[in-house]
Design a protein around this nucleic acid. Structure first.
Lengths: 348, 348
DNA sequence: CTGAAAGCGCTTACAG
DNA sequence: CTGAAAGCGCTTACAG
């Protein structure tokens, strides 16, 4: 395997100069740089990451932490982040928490990360208060996606969860619904994660604005998954008169709800309207109305915010960015997408 | 940050002994090991990966290459692989090809990988013949998942694609269908990737076994996605009398087909039956009949086959494994799952 | 079973 | 703009 001194010899310079030229440092004359690059090319030389990391203290690697890569939001974010990182010359170390407490510990506790990566991205990762301080003390650049996760000194990219839920609820109100249920995630008291709470507040606020009373029996907590949607809806139906419409806190929950309604012999939207939040890849196939959130764009933007201060060769401005997210979160817009799962309630 | 000599000093041994003790080498006395581990614990010491890699030549990292992490099969495989790798002490470097030719080049061409990882896993990655030889010459352990990708010297884990398609087709025949269409992936002549070809052969073989003539107008090539399924089905319907049933080469294609049928005013299964292959997370919600393949298990198994020869602390035998995949592929079983998208054809 | 010493292949002050 | 030399923090023969 060719090493730096092979290139140095061929180019007739020192290894220090090769090192500088390869990294594009400005302190190398154009002619020398050309000679070095030609020699590297000719020898098919590639810098050894291990040696470079040990000597330089930088890893060229970013850790991306997601709860479950199999869910739409996370795989979509990771796809966008992977592209941005690789185009910027960074590697992506994937950590999929998958609900394993040990993994959370290992990943989030200090020592593990700061020797393997230059920066950390946390995607909608429920954190314990202790994790928060541990991360803030990590002395590593970081960024979070989604309001659920906020590390004191890290910038954050997200949507306005409360507004998204308000939009969904208002759509149903506009159609004439008055008996509107809400199914959302299950707030684990051990974790700091506010996305579902914000969505719930949006649903409630919009009903209040419309002058409606909140009916607690129409507001169900479950988990943020297809199966959670199914269970929440079954519970809802078991409680008596069904609502005429359901706001689900995610598209996956909405899909679970549609399945539960079908199993109960209720038609969507004739008997019950359903709306989600996300714009999942399959929302179109299912005819699911939803409030779309830009998952890939949140990923790209977060990647850029993370890499910029590292002096990475980042990829130009991103459309729609307002602010850097460093002091205040960057909030990306959502938008209502009406399909076939929502319609006016039947005349009584 | 504590280094190896801090630990050595505290434990009263040399750094060589600390190194050996930390890695669990057998050439350390129990008493010494205990002393070293206690010192490391006390100092909160963690080996520097960069230094360890440079000195030892091992990276403790595996590259996992997928075409698109957002698709069901790939995210499910990656989730299982991530768990196995991390439990075995390995890091996972994610490469999402995403159809970008440059990325394929960068990832698959020699120099890039062999300095950053100890091994490579390729998941259903269409390869050019030139890539195949490049990888075989990489001198790096590797494993592939799915018959689409076969690197000469690498073991392979997959299902029997032809048998899966036969099972799907036979189910429709058993229900009484005779006019059965097939929609599958688009074979790109530049790539070596045989999964769709194998599934097509299974469909055709089963029809022939039933004594039916093949009707080329019922066999459509499209892409392996939701959208591909929609387009293929629209094309099918545009060709005249619709079939009474469709075999889709993947669940995502089947979902696209269901959407296209609905848009055309045809009901599933009353007018047209649809069956897929996969058992996608959402197949249940959609009531989609399918031939299930064990994605997570293929991932786990491939990870194990990859790590075993590296002397990794692997995690015991995996149920259902037959052979090591080194000489002949490991073939995992599929099974028919009947839901609501398949039914007998209507009486004419 | 343990240690002294060389070496892995770079980057970085420092000096010029 | 360029080079000589030290050093990054480990692992690995080698010797005992």
């Amino acid at each position: 395997m060719t090493r730096i001194d092979d290139v140095a010899r061929l180019a007739g310079v020192s290894t220090a100069t090769v090192s500088r030229a390869m990294r594009g440092l400005p302190t190398v004359s154009a002619a020398t740089r050309r000679r070095v690059l030609a020699a590297a090319e000719q020898l098919n030389y590639e810098v050894s990451p291990s040696a470079s990391r040990l000597a330089g203290g930088r890893t060229g690697t970013v850790a991306v932490v997601v709860p479950r890569i199999t869910r739409w939001f996370f795989s979509t974010v990771v796809e966008a982040v992977e592209e941005y990182l690789h185009e910027s010359g960074y590697d992506l170390l994937l950590y999929n928490l998958g609900g394993r407490e040990q993994v959370r510990q290992r990943v989030l506790r200090t020592a593990n990360l700061h020797k393997r990566v230059d920066a950390v991205m946390l995607v909608a990762t429920p954190l314990r208060p202790a994790d928060l301080t541990a991360l803030a003390n990590l002395d590593l650049p970081g960024v979070t996606i989604s309001s659920g996760t906020t590390v004191p000194t890290w910038p954050c990219v997200r949507i306005d969860d409360m507004a998204a839920a308000r939009t969904a609820t208002r759509h149903l109100l506009d159609l004439g619904h008055r008996r509107i249920a809400h199914i959302s995630g299950d707030p684990d008291q051990h974790f700091v994660f506010t996305a579902h709470a914000d969505r719930r507040r949006g649903y409630q606020a919009e009903l209040r604005t419309a002058g409606l009373r909140l009916d607690p029996s129409l507001d169900i907590e479950s988990s943020f998954t297809i199966d959670g949607g199914t269970r929440a809806t079954a519970e809802l139906l078991a409680r008596g008169t069904p609502p005429t419409a359901i706001v689900a806190a995610s598209d996956e929950m909405a899909m679970g709800a549609m399945a539960a309604l079908r199993d109960a012999g209720l038609r969507v939207p004739q008997d019950v309207s359903v709306i989600g939040i996300d714009d999942h890849d399959l929302a179109g196939v299912l005819g699911l109305s939803t409030v779309a959130q830009p998952a890939a764009e949140q990923g790209r933007l977060a990647a850029r915010i993370l890499l910029d201060p590292l002096g990475a060769r980042t990829l130009g401005p991103i459309v729609g960015q307002r602010g850097t997210g460093r002091d205040t979160p960057v909030i990306l817009p959502t938008r209502l997408v009406v399909r076939d799962s929502t319609a006016p309630p039947r005349a009584p």
